[in-house]
Design a binder for these strands. Structure first.
Ligand SMILES: [Zn+2]
Ligand SMILES: [Zn+2]
Ligand SMILES: [Zn+2]
Ligand SMILES: [Zn+2]
Lengths: 126, 126
DNA sequence: TTGACGAACGTGATAACATAACATAACGGA
DNA sequence: TCCGTTATGTTATGTTATCACGTTCGTCAA
């Protein structure tokens, strides 16, 4: 059901400790026979639709969802500029605040991008 | 002091109703003699450093700061998928929540990207 | 004045990210 | 089988961003 290429991409992201770019995935998956960017992007699009993968805008990269089936555009990320790891966060208080901001100006939110950039605990402590 | 090219870019963004891409700016500023992407990107980098312009990650575009001299990475945006306008929001409650999220995992935030995508009030009502 | 220096600028090439256009194969139900 | 849908493959191209290198220009001290 997932489709062959989707499974390859999903596996690669699962093995990775950090978000990966599409061309990085392509490089890795050449061994499996994937040859063109489009094959990667199509697989990513579907995985994102299914809520298994998130796109990290500030990195132009893609990360496995730590839940399974996160609805689109509801996760926040803390991204370490040093080690590259991105930790996914779900916070009801954050969602409330974002809803309030939207409501105040009559904005109908379809999806939200929340990305903190900085240093993770491990990297900050040295 | 702002530099000639920075002023051109700043003026263009001021006249624009919505965020502009770097190549869109380039196109517009050809008349002024700007010819290469780098001229645009350099000007944008400086304007961003000075807090006069924000980069909108989810659009790969750039918007004039509605305040003057917004410290880097502290603004949120509500971006209309229909008309393209991006409204800049500053919300103390949002900043508190983001600080709390960071603190919980010992994350040292350098900057935050918060972008809502959806429909603005005008566009939702028709 | 002059020359040293750094900041801003100019240009061409190239890297990195993403999609268009078109063709083919695989699958499943009428 | 026939048809429609979904997944796939390939080439070319479009869009966004940076590198490497050289030049111009203002400032300031000798
Ligand atoms: Zn998720
Ligand atoms: Zn780290
Ligand atoms: Zn601002
Ligand atoms: Zn609108």
């Amino acid at each position: 059901m997932p489709g062959r290429n989707q499974q390859f991409v999903l596996d690669a992201l699962t093995r990775s400790e950090r978000p990966m770019g599409a061309y990085e995935l392509l490089e890795l998956l050449r061994q499996e026979g994937l040859r063109s960017p489009l094959q990667i992007y199509r697989a990513l699009d579907r995985l994102i639709e299914e809520g298994l993968v998130h796109r990290i805008e500030s990195l132009s990269a893609f990360a496995l969802c730590v839940h399974s089936e996160c609805t689109h555009g509801r996760a926040a990320f803390a991204i370490c500029a040093n080690c590259g790891r991105a930790s996914e966060v779900h916070d009801p208080a954050l969602e409330r605040v974002l809803r309030r901001i939207a409501r105040r100006q009559g904005f109908r939110t379809k999806s939200a991008t929340v990305e903190l950039s900085g240093l993770c605990e491990a990297c900050a402590h040295r």
